[in-house]
Simulated scan of single mutants.
Amino acid sequence: MSVAAPVRVLIVGTGGMAAAHAEAYAAMEGVTVVGGVDRNPDTLAAFAATHGVARTFDSVEAAIAWGAFDAVSNVTPDQVHHATTMPLLAAGKHVLCEKPLAVNHAEAQAMADAAQGAGVVNMVNLTYRNVPAVMEAARLVASGAIGEIRHFEASYLQSWLTQPAWGQWNTEAQWLWRLSTKHGSLGVLGDVGVHILDFTTFIAGADVARMSCRLHTFDKAPGGVIGNYTLDANDSASMQVQLTDGAVGVVHASRMASGHLNDLRLRIFGTTGGLDVRWENNVSRLQACLQPDLQVGTWRDLDVPPVRTNYVRFIDAVRSGTMVRPDFARGATLQLALDAAVASDKDACRDVVVG
């Protein structure tokens, strides 16, 4: 049996989501998290102690000067993805970056160009590519199983602003920063809107061509402020979308969807069939209505094969020296749609051509 080549990983940003990265790497043969980077010494120390990380740094530059790592997970807040990733790419390091790739298309495209120029493995952690139903649905659409896509409806529903299933949003920093643009949040649009846009367009096999969007921030505290956090990031997003293949539909996301802890759904309809793709209560499910069931509207469950996670595919790509998707170029394409959503909302929800 061959022994997997060792890979040394640096994790940049050691807040809540960093644990998922560290645990995923710890489960892989030959992969070691060798260092952590964070400006908050308490957060960094706690992360290092929990995950047995030997080296810690207060800046990316200090970690690069040390240099004893091969690949990086960037788990920093959205607004510093660009600033923290660019030096790593210049240093020739492979990077898996959390989503959204950046806060605007210019930064995202700069990251994609730099990654391509450096010739390193680059990947955006769009975690719902880990869902078997998603990957099988994309394969079925690409195979022509439901014909030409005509219409879709997609949603990403969370309820952590109405029920404390994951913690107290109004007292814990890991939630409060997600409600504050000053602290690097792009709101529900950047946090989970990017997921449902990828979920939809990846399965449909077409990108967003134009959209109109309404973003809304609800009153959640007196004066919209809790401590150092101004709660101005959007809580709900509703988009009317047309894809590059002409299909039209609606995409919406909310943190106020009571009863839905973390649920995604896409219903997509073609000229010869339809698919219903779900990730609900941590269960993946795919249903289809195809010929001859199409004539009587019968939907049936489909078996779906297991898939490798983004973390595994990233490390495999680092070891083999091959590229992997979703890459930074995909992140930049999605950022065009996010930018269009923001522009539409600011312009009385008018229709905006993407890009």
Rank of each mutant, 00 (worst) to 15 (best):
A317S: 05
M256R: 08
A209H: 12
V296E: 11
N282G: 07
P306H: 01
L215W: 04
T309C: 00
D316I: 12
A332N: 07
T272R: 12
V250T: 15
L243M: 01
D327T: 03
N310H: 14
N234A: 10
S320M: 09
P305A: 11
G331C: 03
R214E: 12
Q240W: 05
R300Q: 13
G227H: 05
H252R: 10
F218Y: 12
I226T: 07
F218N: 10
Q242Y: 06
R308A: 15
N234H: 08
V304R: 00
D301R: 06
V296R: 13
G297D: 08
Q240V: 09
V318N: 05
L302G: 03
L294E: 05
V248M: 13
E280A: 10
S284A: 10
V250E: 12
R265K: 14
Q242R: 11
V312T: 14
S284V: 00
A288K: 04
M211S: 08
D316P: 04
D327H: 08
A288M: 08
W299C: 11
V277T: 03
D327P: 01
S212H: 09
S238L: 08
R319F: 00
A253C: 15
S212N: 14
R319C: 04
V208R: 02
W279R: 04
V318I: 12
T217C: 05
V277Q: 01
R210V: 00
T230D: 08
Q295E: 12
N282F: 13
C213L: 13
D327K: 01
Y311F: 10
A329N: 11
R214G: 10
P326D: 07
W279K: 04
G246H: 02
H260K: 03
A221M: 02
R308H: 14
D263C: 08
T298N: 11
H260P: 00
V304G: 09
Q242L: 05
W279S: 12
V296H: 14
L261K: 05
I268L: 11
S258H: 13
G227N: 04
A233Q: 00
N228K: 13
H252S: 12
A209K: 10
R265A: 15
V312F: 03
Q242C: 08
R325S: 14
G246I: 00
F218H: 14
A257H: 02
R325W: 09
F269K: 13
A221R: 04
H260N: 15
N234V: 06
G331V: 05
S320I: 11
D232V: 01
N282P: 00
P292T: 03
M256V: 01
V277G: 09
F269L: 14
L290S: 06
G297Y: 05
A206R: 03
A233K: 01
Q291P: 10
V248W: 06
S236A: 13
G331R: 03
S254N: 01
D232K: 05
V307H: 03
R325H: 14
L243Q: 08
V277R: 01
R330T: 11
G297L: 09
L334A: 06
L231D: 03
A209I: 06
A237T: 10
D263T: 07
D232S: 06
M211P: 08
P326N: 06
L302R: 09
T217E: 07
I226R: 02
G270P: 02
E280T: 12
L264I: 05
N310K: 11
A206I: 02
V225M: 07
V251I: 13
R210C: 09
D263R: 04
A237Y: 00
L266C: 06
C289N: 14
N228V: 10
C213R: 12
Q295I: 08
Q295A: 10
L261H: 09
